[in-house]
């Protein structure tokens, strides 16, 4: 499984999130298509794609001399799992809070 640090660092940069959004909209894109759509220059896009690929957020498919980028589920799953883990923590905390306030004889709901 891909490390969550890597994934969150990758998505912690606004231009990389923009590239992910573009890939989400377009399913598959070449670097030059991403350059046009993002307004970034080619070296920047390539650099960001490399970071995103290392975090398994994008996958690449070679076709002739073109490389087609698309979203990769592995990194997204890691990010999703990470955020979902906070649901668990908040649930535990708020369950405890609810237990505290709702067993208070003076103020519990009916």
């Amino acid at each position: 499984m891909v490390g969550v640090d890597l994934v969150l660092e990758a998505v912690g940069e606004p231009n990389r999130r923009r590239l992910l959004e573009l890939l989400h909209q377009q399913h598959e894109s070449t670097v030059s298509e991403l350059v046009r759509a993002s307004g970034l220059n080619q070296p920047q896009v390539s650099k960001h794609l490399k970071v995103l690929a290392s975090a398994m957020l994008v996958a690449v498919r070679a076709e002739g001399r073109h490389r087609h980028y698309r979203l990769d589920g592995a990194g997204l799953q890691a990010a999703h799992d990470w955020f979902a883990s906070f649901d668990d923590v908040w649930n535990a905390r708020f369950d405890a809070l609810d237990e505290l306030v709702s067993t208070d004889p003076e103020s519990s709901a009916t």
Partner: peptide
Amino acid sequence: FGAPPERVFRAFTDPADLRIWF
């Protein structure tokens, strides 16, 4: 939460309560 706002507000701000749930 199963209590009125005043009680929940207190749970969020009172140290004795916070120590229990936080």
